[in-house]
Write a protein that binds this DNA or RNA. Structure first.
Lengths: 181, 181
DNA sequence: GTCTATATAGGGATAGAC
DNA sequence: GTCTATCCCTATATAGAC
């Protein structure tokens, strides 16, 4: 089994349990590989596994969320494409946000830069799209932040309340937040 | 030292590190009590410490956020009082949300009910205040959810970005979200 | 590339002196 | 009520056979 095949199986473990909760035993179970085999692929141990997962996810987001946001279609269409990517990424709100669980405790010390970079990349792209509709830079930035907060907040609510409705509503509200306000 | 004096010192550890990251060693350092002394106060061990912390926090919220929301003052005034309580609770966005970090991994299995109850209590009270302004129940509920999402999402953004601005803006926007829309 | 077996550290928890 | 000392278990990580 290649590294590329292993990483996707690691993702849900970190997502669901967080960095400290994602024990090598659980990672072993999730991949079907024994511990020693995991260490063969990731000599840097658990830390490297998490780093690889974050990189993989950043690339996935790039392809499915950020790139569609930069197409030459009209803003509303690009927002729609982004929303579709997000809905897939979070499985309609059922999957927690990796970036958010990795910003807790020890993991934050290890990966803060990566998380910050991904988030700010997203914010910057989103701001740019809104600016193109003739909105002032500062207001555009605020709307981008509002959209992100809504999504992240919805994910928290969904987790605690076991009801994906808030996430679906947040996704549906994105065009309004970003373009109509 | 009494239990009541110990609990407040435990809170920041769970808040910052999450349940699995909050090791008994760290809890010992934070309180200045050795492990055995902690176990004297909390015979149920770490799980009981976390439960006590959650209960303490729920009571704090009751007093400083929920009760002000139920006063006989006008809705706008009650929202303002709630905002003030929230700002204090999250130290202007610098402290993570205990409810959100405790909804990760193993902790979620242990404390899901408590978390859900606190959150729904808050949502219900908030919904009621909005209904009093003549808003339809369903819309009122949605606005309450929106407000909560905004706060929770802002806290995520603040953590990742090391900038409390989004939280302050979220707090400032509460009256608009809840009353003006 | 995957495994069994094992080493080492730290986590949660307890016994018993003071 | 707090401590030192200790127990057991799990966590991360490695050695070396296949």
């Amino acid at each position: 089994m290649s590294k590329e095949q292993v990483i996707p199986k690691l993702i849900p473990v970190f997502r669901h349990y967080g960095y400290e909760g994602a024990t090598v035993s659980r990672l072993s179970d999730a991949t079907g590989l024994k511990k020693a085999s995991l260490y063969h692929h990731f000599q840097g141990g658990k830390e490297q596994m998490a780093a690889a997962v974050l990189e993989y996810v950043a690339n996935w987001l790039d392809e499915n969320v950020f790139t569609p946001l930069q197409s030459d279609k009209p803003p509303s269409e690009r927002i729609r494409a982004m929303s579709q990517g997000l809905d897939k990424f979070y499985d309609s709100g059922q999957d927690p946000c990796l970036l958010s669980v990795m910003s807790v405790g020890e993991a934050d010390n290890l990966f803060h830069q990566q998380l910050e970079q991904s988030l700010n990349h997203w914010l910057a792209l989103l701001t740019q799209v809104i600016e193109e509709t003739g909105v002032e830079p500062e207001l555009a930035r605020q709307r981008a932040e509002d959209a992100l907060m809504m999504i992240q907040g919805a994910l928290v609510l969904v987790r605690v309340n076991n009801d994906t409705q808030p996430f679906k509503r947040a996704i549906a509200k994105l065009p309004q937040i970003l373009l109509d306000d």
